[in-house]
């Protein structure tokens, strides 16, 4: 079980981005973490996985426990070995390497060759499309295939907890469905999931529990069905009212992302 308590994160010694974030991911569950742009979702992920340092970020308060051990300041590699894997925002596949090589890179911490073999079989079963494109250079895969590869790469570490950062971002509705189904399947195979999303509909439809974050704080949390029915959540995150506005807001986000990947 993952337990984040009262976490504060500061970037560049001055920008306070997380102001006392707490959340729990019980074993075997899917937990959704929702929030608008800049709410601090990715920062929370970085804190949990130990990747704040390259962003000049630092945990100034609070703690993170995984399976009873404190991991707040551990090396990222150690956390991966303990069973926490992530699928980063924007997929971040190794574009110049083949699909197989990407999966091999994902299996770096997994030392036994039997374990690697088993993880590889699991990934190939989950993603038949990747199996067909095993030798293809990752950079030439479609966006959906790249997302599958990013998830597959993380699964090569045989995680106990998988954290996905906006896996539906930039994907067509049909592909979002596929990603959703895959997450459910992975969870049914026994992996806990922390699903970071702006697509609240998708996330809450499969999650057991949900958290909603705004400007570095949790503003609401509860069972997923309850959140789905909540009026405020409906208005602000599910786009059931003021639909036009919501939609254009999301388009702006996609546009911004695309530019960043191109540069």
């Amino acid at each position: 079980m993952l337990r984040v308590e009262n976490l504060e994160v500061v970037y560049n010694d001055v920008v306070l981005v997380l102001r006392g974030v707490s959340l729990e991911v019980p074993d075997g569950k899917i937990v959704a973490l929702l929030g608008a742009n800049g709410a601090g979702k990715t920062t929370t992920l970085r804190a949990i996985t130990g990747l704040l340092d390259i962003h000049e970020g630092e945990i100034t308060k609070g703690s993170i426990h995984f399976d009873g051990d404190e991991i707040t300041h551990l090396d990222p590699a150690v956390r991966v070995k303990k069973g926490i894997s992530q699928v980063m925002e924007g997929r971040r596949v190794f574009a110049e390497m083949t699909v197989d090589e990407n999966l091999k890179a994902g299996a770096y911490v997994n030392s036994g060759s039997d374990a690697v073999e088993a993880a590889y079989e699991r990934v190939m079963d989950l993603f038949p499309r990747l199996k067909e494109r095993r030798k293809a250079v990752a950079g030439y895969l479609s966006g959906g295939e790249q997302q599958m590869l990013a998830i597959g790469r993380a699964l090569m570490q045989q995680p106990k907890l998988l954290i996905l950062d906006e896996p539906s971002l930039g994907l067509a509705p049909l592909l979002v469905q596929q990603v959703r189904d895959v997450i459910v399947e992975i969870n049914e195979q026994g992996t806990s999931v922390l699903l970071i999303e702006q697509n609240a509909n998708m996330a809450l439809s499969i999650a057991h529990h949900g958290y909603i974050m705004e400007t570095g704080k949790m503003v609401m949390d509860g069972p997923a069905e309850k959140l789905l029915r909540d009026e405020d959540v409906q208005e602000f995150y599910l786009g059931l009212r003021g639909e036009g506005e919501r939609k254009s807001f999301r388009d702006v986000k996609h546009y911004k992302r695309r530019k960043r990947w191109l540069s």
Partner: peptide, 12 residues
Amino acid sequence: FDQEAARAQGID
């Protein structure tokens, strides 16, 4: 290719 993504895989 991508230091951060490599570290995310547990690569030292």
